Every structure is written in structure tokens, then in C-alpha cells.
Simulated assay, not measured.
Amino acid sequence: MSRKFTPKVVTANDLLEGDVIYLAADDRWVRDMKQAEFIEDEAHAQIRLLHAEQQPDVVVGAYLADAALGDDGPEPTHFRETFRTRGPSNYAHGKQEKQAENV
């Protein structure tokens, strides 16, 4: 018996900057998972992943990540994806640096 499809987002890493990025419904790559396209159809998810994989000059390591729809948009459902939304693991870079500036 096959497993029921769970909602997804397309995620990858920005080729030049290394940041975690997400594919939005309008084909833009965004850095906030809440702006990502929330995909509830398995066939559509595969099409969107193929679209991402055809951009080797922009992204690396594209894959489908499980997601749930929250109040503000897609949210991670797995620890790995939660960790990836927080930015680099060293404090002085990327998203974490911007968060420190706002404190």
C-alpha cells in the first residue's frame, strides 16, 4: 500500500550564496519558507521539483520538504527543516546576523 502524499515545499541552496531558499508560486526563489509555494498535489510537486532542478546556475540540491500550512504560510514539520529555516549554524552570518541586529 502506498503512503498518502503529504504537503511539500521545494527547497534548495542558493548556488552563489549558499543560503537556504524556497520556490514561490510565481517561480521566484525566496529565503523565507512562509513565502514558498505550498504544494498539496503529488504530481504538481514533482513538476515543481523538475523546474527547480533545471536551474543549476541558480540552485544546488533541490528537493521536496514536508510542510504544514500555518497562519502565515508553510511551516516545517521536521527538525531538519526547522533548523534550515534558522540560517547558518554559526551566529555571525545570514539570517541569524539580521536577527541579532533587530534585538
Rank of each mutant, 00 (worst) to 15 (best):
M1Y: 03
S2K: 10
S2G: 05
S2E: 15
R3H: 09
R3C: 03
K4V: 15
F5E: 07
T6F: 11
P7N: 03
K8I: 07
K8S: 14
K8F: 05
K8V: 11
V9Q: 05
A12V: 00
N13D: 05
D14S: 13
D14P: 00
L15E: 01
L15T: 00
L15S: 01
L16C: 05
L16A: 13
G18S: 08
D19K: 03
D19T: 07
V20F: 03
I21N: 01
I21P: 02
I21K: 00
L23M: 07
L23K: 00
A24G: 09
A24H: 13
A24Q: 07
A24Y: 01
A24R: 11
A25L: 11
A25R: 13
D26K: 09
D26A: 07
D27P: 01
R28T: 05
R28P: 02
R28G: 03
W29F: 08
V30R: 10
V30S: 09
R31C: 13
R31A: 12
D32E: 13
M33H: 03
Q35W: 03
A36M: 10
E37V: 00
E37D: 13
E37Q: 14
F38M: 12
F38R: 02
I39L: 10
I39E: 03
E40F: 07
E40D: 13
E40Q: 11
D41I: 06
D41T: 04
E42M: 10
E42C: 04
A43W: 07
H44C: 04
H44W: 05
R48P: 04
R48L: 09
R48K: 10
L49E: 03
L49C: 06
L49D: 00
L50M: 09
L50R: 10
H51D: 04
H51M: 02
H51C: 06
A52I: 03
A52M: 12
A52Y: 02
E53T: 01
Q54K: 08
Q55F: 02
Q55I: 01
P56V: 00
D57A: 11
V58D: 02
V58W: 02
V60R: 01
A62V: 03
Y63L: 15
Y63V: 05
L64V: 04
A65G: 13
A65L: 06
D66V: 05
A67E: 06
A67S: 12
A68C: 08
G70T: 06
G70F: 06
G70L: 04
D71S: 15
D71M: 11
D72C: 07
D72H: 09
G73M: 05
G73H: 10
G73F: 05
G73W: 04
P74E: 09
P76C: 14
P76M: 09
P76W: 14
T77G: 04
T77N: 05
T77I: 15
F79Y: 15
R80E: 13
T82F: 15
T82R: 11
R84M: 13
T85V: 12
R86I: 06
G87F: 00
P88R: 01
S89C: 14
N90Y: 08
N90V: 10
N90E: 09
Y91L: 14
Y91N: 08
Y91C: 07
Y91F: 13
Y91T: 09
A92N: 12
A92I: 06
A92R: 12
G94W: 00
G94N: 02
Q96T: 15
Q96G: 12
K98Q: 08
K98P: 00
K98V: 08
Q99T: 04
A100S: 14
A100I: 09
E101M: 06
E101V: 07
N102I: 08
V103H: 13
V103G: 12
V103Y: 13
